[in-house]
């Protein structure tokens, strides 16, 4: 399943990067030290954190993308740095659990 496959149904707005990458799993956590040791490569990572440190975690773990849920504001500096570091960043009005449940339903239809 690619990011593009769930864009519409999960109300995802692409802020930086593209939706071509494969999603291998889902991960939701806001403590960065926890996320960095438990998220997996290729995960769609959901976090309410909107500071620039999430980009370092994303690129070190090599997640597929970061999703900032619940329409949380995304500072322009985060967008700039995400572009620079080639991290795919998305936003959604959904809550983390809502998004994961929806995406899981979609993945069943795809396979």
């Amino acid at each position: 399943m690619k990011i593009n496959d769930i864009l519409e149904e999960c109300k995802l707005k692409l802020i930086t990067g593209n939706g071509d990458r494969e999603i291998k799993g889902f991960y939701a956590c806001d403590l960065l030290s926890w996320a960095i040791s438990h998220a997996n490569e290729g995960d769609l990572w959901i976090t309410v954190m909107n500071n620039i440190n999430i980009l370092a975690v994303a690129s070190l773990v090599d997640v597929a993308c970061i999703v900032i849920p619940e329409d949380i504001e995304i500072p322009s500096v985060l967008i700039e740095k995400a572009e620079e570091r080639e991290v795919t960043l998305l936003s959604t009005p959904m809550q983390a659990a809502e998004l994961i449940i929806k995406a899981h339903e979609l993945s069943k239809n795809l396979s």
């Binding site: 403590l31 960065l32 954190m49 999430i54």
Partner: peptide, 11 residues
């Protein structure tokens, strides 16, 4: 900022 979970050295 999402740090200070006490996971640094254990990680």
């Amino acid at each position: 900022l999402g740090f200070g979970a006490g996971m640094g050295l254990p990680n």
